[in-house]
């Protein structure tokens, strides 16, 4: 998009075609329960409802029925120096798809993977404890490697 300067559009002119779009869209977990044929997005501030619909239908092949957008104001944060700072605003979109489409936001941190990672960490902590014990017991040989002995 940045590579090409488009002419200004006025009524009657040809439709502008974007070859290299540079909008971003993030699929986010909805705060409250929504129907299975709906999805919640964080979108670029420049995007319109029509843009969102075209984006999803053309690039992701999702049958879009309706799009609703709203802009959430950035929160005011108290700066440690005393003044207040405002976070940037964010545009959101609720997208309704066809009735037969079903989408549930997946759990991206499954318990099976977590348990496996924790097990690995346990092994590390065991080794660490053993090292500490050795250090306390063999204080007279501190700094000497394990293979060094008389």
């Amino acid at each position: 998009m940045a590579t090409k300067t488009y002419p200004l559009w006025k009524p009657g002119g040809p439709q502008l075609r974007i070859f290299l779009p540079d909008f971003y869209m993030k699929l986010v977990r909805p705060a409250r329960a929504i129907p299975p044929n709906m999805a919640h997005f964080k979108i670029d501030m420049k995007m319109s409802k029509i843009d969102v619909k075209n984006y999803l239908t053309k690039i992701y092949n999702v049958p879009v029925k309706e799009v609703r957008t709203h802009i959430k104001k950035g929160m005011l944060i108290r700066h440690p120096a005393g003044h207040k700072v405002e976070e940037p605003d964010q545009k959101y979109a609720f997208v309704t798809m066809e009735k037969n489409v079903e989408f549930h936001f997946p759990n991206l941190f499954p318990d099976v993977v977590r348990q496996a990672l924790e097990k690995e960490e346990e092994g590390f902590s065991d080794a660490l404890n053993k090292m500490r014990l050795d250090k306390s017991q063999k204080w007279h040989r501190s700094g000497a490697p394990t293979w060094f002995s008389v």
Partner: peptide, 17 residues
């Protein structure tokens, strides 16, 4: 794999470090 699931990584990478 044209779907809404394309917004997520492949299942193998979920929860990995």
């Amino acid at each position: 794999r044209k779907d809404l699931m394309e917004f997520f990584d492949i299942k193998k990478n979920w929860g990995q470090k």
